[in-house]
């Protein structure tokens, strides 16, 4: 096992551009590669992606591979394809984003290679001497953090969005090596028939600078309409806690939290949200958290910088009017 070297990052191209998660992985991976004095490698799978994949050099990659697989992402096919990279690289660490694709592919590849995977990690560091990767992740609904490692190589890890810093691109490029997809026994047993976008219009939650998010305290779908108006006026996006989504007051695509979206806006306004750790884990990297809640003991006030103890139905309109008056 002594021959494992370098760090491989699974890259994604989204709407013709290098994905935000991919840039974050390249940033985090570059740091680890520098500690080890080893290379950072990016591998992409998709349909005619060579040129865009090349951009990974600008974000810190030392080598870039692309595998042409036509059609939509399908986990079984991609995991089979990814295993072929091992004919070219025997990585020490293999990093994925913990998102639609990575959370699917990372563990699947690990089982295929007969090694352990650690998922949804927020912190990565190299253990001195052993060069093992130490990973930290929230567990028990983010009430506690757990630090793990493994003696298996490669170490496969999925990284939570927004937990690594995407570097600024530099003027650097190189060749994109093509990889053969090969074929596995599972090819053809799964077919993606349709991809349906349910996302509401306007600013994407993940990209928003300001998020107005509502929870159980909003009470119903009608209440969320008022919240959406406030979000629009503040030029932000609307988010929600899982309770609000499970009650179908709002679509599941705007859920913030461990099983929803991980966000880190400049301003996060939590309205009628109790602040359960599962939710906070999805927004705790926001720069400023503002809480509006009737219950003075709500956990949200432990993590917010500004708070109002009161009924949001009164607070929000007054807040908006006053802000306008101050303009």
């Amino acid at each position: 096992m002594g021959d494992h070297k370098h760090i491989v990052v699974y890259g994604e191209i989204i709407e013709g551009q290098l994905g935000a998660m991919t840039k974050e992985l390249l940033g985090g991976g570059r740091g680890l590669a520098d500690v080890l004095g080893e290379d950072l490698v990016a591998v992409f799978i998709g349909d005619g992606i060579g040129e865009t994949a090349r951009e990974a050099y600008a974000f810190g990659a030392d080598r870039v591979y692309a595998m042409d697989i036509p059609g939509a992402y399908e986990a079984n096919l991609y995991a089979g394809g990814l295993a072929n990279i091992l004919e070219h690289e025997q990585p020490r660490y293999f990093l994925f984003g913990h998102d639609d694709q990575g959370a699917d592919l990372g563990p699947a590849l690990a089982f295929k290679l007969n090694v352990a995977a650690a998922t949804d990690c927020v912190e990565l560091s190299v253990e001195e001497g052993t060069k093992r990767l130490l990973v930290t992740k929230p567990v028990y609904g983010a009430l506690v953090m757990a630090k793990f490692s493994t003696d298996d190589l490669p170490q496969i890890v999925t990284v939570r969005p927004k937990s690594m810093i995407a570097p600024d691109p530099v003027d650097r490029t190189g060749e994109v090596r093509s990889l053969d997809a090969g074929s596995t026994a599972l090819n053809g047993r799964v077919k993606v028939l349709e991809k349906i976008v349910e996302e509401s219009e306007g600013i994407k939650l993940e990209d928003a600078e300001l998020i107005v998010s509502g929870g159980r305290g909003i009470g119903d779908a009608e209440g969320f309409k008022k919240l959406a108006e406030v979000a629009r006026e503040l030029k932000g996006a609307m988010g929600a806690s899982r309770v609000a989504c499970d009650n179908e007051w709002v679509p599941a695509t705007i859920q913030v939290g461990i099983t929803g979206k991980i966000v880190a806006p400049r301003i996060y306004i939590a309205v009628g949200i109790s602040g359960a750790s599962q939710h906070m884990s999805g927004c705790s990297r926001s720069k400023t958290i503002i809480a509006i809640n009737k219950d003075p003991r709500a956990a949200i006030f432990k993590q917010a910088q500004y708070g109002v103890v009161g009924d949001w139905k009164i607070v929000l309109p007054v807040l908006m009017d006053k802000l306008k008056a101050l303009d």
Binding site: V144, A146, K147, S149, T150, G307
Partner: peptide
């Protein structure tokens, strides 16, 4: 996968609660 350490996350945040006679 070996568990090396369990610890409480550091939660910073000193919340400035707004004062007032009314909401």
């Amino acid at each position: 996968l070996h568990l090396l350490k369990l610890f409480k996350p550091v939660i910073q945040g000193t919340c400035e609660i707004m004062e007032g006679e009314s909401t």
